[in-house]
């Protein structure tokens, strides 16, 4: 139901490297899962606009920064510290140009 080529396309879109072994088993598993969820195509539904969105409403809030007791931006240092590669106040990545 899904070809290896289609699977490779999905993996590229999702930015995941797959081995040949992965591909073989995933194609098989996809067949069984898609075989199941394809039953949904038989359900009689109206695809009007009301059915596409839930009951959720947009909620806005003020864009304020949480400060710690000392008046510093609370999470800034800790957030930067979690980056795999940090240079000063920047997160470092490979050159892209």
């Amino acid at each position: 139901m899904i070809t290896t080529k289609e699977l490779e396309k999905l993996a590229t879109l999702a930015r995941i490297k797959l081995t040949e072994e992965d591909k073989t088993s995933l194609v098989k598993e996809f067949d069984s899962i898609l075989g199941y969820i394809d039953q949904l195509k038989k359900v009689d539904v109206s695809l009007d606009s009301a059915s596409r969105v839930g009951d959720v409403k947009n909620v806005a809030r003020l864009d304020v920064i949480d400060l710690d007791e000392a008046g510093h931006v609370d999470a800034r240092e800790r957030l930067l510290d979690e980056a795999p590669d940090r240079e000063g106040d920047f997160i470092a990545v490979k050159k892209i140009l």
Partner: peptide
């Protein structure tokens, strides 16, 4: 998208 995601959302509503 229509065959799966939108349809699933409609079923969810039902």
């Amino acid at each position: 998208y229509d065959a799966y995601y939108n349809r699933a959302n409609a079923v969810r509503r039902m």
